[in-house]
C-alpha cells in the first residue's frame, strides 16, 4: 500500500510533504482509530506519539509510524484536549499515552491513564507548571 492509498483511505484532503527524509500528513480532523487500525493492518509499527502545545489551548499530536523503514507522520489536533485512545489497537500506545497525559494533561478517551513518570499525587501536565521555572527564558538561572 503506497502513501496515496493511505491518504485516500483516511479521507484526507491534504498532501504528503517530505521533510528531512520523513513524510508528513497534516489532517486537523484525523480519525485516529481508523488510521491506527489501517497502519496496524498493513504491518506498520508505531514509533511514538509527539504532543506539543498550540496557542489555542489545544495540542498538536503527531503519530509517527514506521512502514518498512519509511517514517510516516500523521499530524492532528486535539478537540478540547481529548483524542480517542489507540491502546486497544496498538498496545505500544499504552505507555506513550500515559506519558503524554503526564506531560500535557491530554486526555485519551476510552482508557484509564495512571501516571507513568510522575508520582500519583502530582497533577498531570508538567509542561504547564510555570512555577518550576524562575530564570529567564533560554538562559540558565
Amino acid at each position: 500500500m503506497d502513501l496515496e492509498e493511505i491518504r485516500e483511505h483516511l479521507g484526507s484532503m491534504e498532501v504528503w510533504v517530505n521533510k528531512a527524509k520523513a513524510w508528513w500528513l497534516e489532517t486537523p480532523n484525523l480519525d485516529v482509530e481508523k488510521m491506527a487500525r489501517l497502519m496496524v493492518d498493513i504491518g506498520s509499527r508505531l514509533v511514538t506519539v509527539t504532543a506539543s502545545r498550540v496557542p489555542e489551548g489545544e495540542f498538536r499530536i503527531i503519530y509517527h509510524w514506521d512502514l518498512q523503514g519509511q517514517l510516516l507522520n500523521f499530524v492532528t489536533l486535539t478537540h478540547q484536549a481529548t483524542l480517542p485512545s489507540i491502546m486497544s489497537i496498538s498496545p505500544v500506545a499504552d505507555w506513550i499515552e500515559r506519558e503524554i497525559h503526564d506531560y500535557f494533561a491530554v486526555d485519551f478517551a476510552g482508557r484509564k491513564l495512571p501516571t507513568l513518570v510522575l508520582s500519583e499525587k502530582d497533577p498531570p501536565g508538567i509542561f504547564s507548571w510555570n512555577f518550576l521555572w524562575k530564570g529567564k527564558e533560554g538562559g540558565h538561572a
Binding site: T48, T50, S52, V92, I96, E137, G138
Partner: peptide, 29 residues
Amino acid sequence: GELFYYVSSDGTDIPCRVKIRTPSFVNLP
C-alpha cells in the same frame, strides 16, 4: 534499539519542542 528525536523550531535559538523516544521506553513494557 531505535532512538527517535523530534525537534520543532520557531526560528529562535531555543527549540520549541524536543521529543525523545528512547528504545527502552518501548522495550520495557
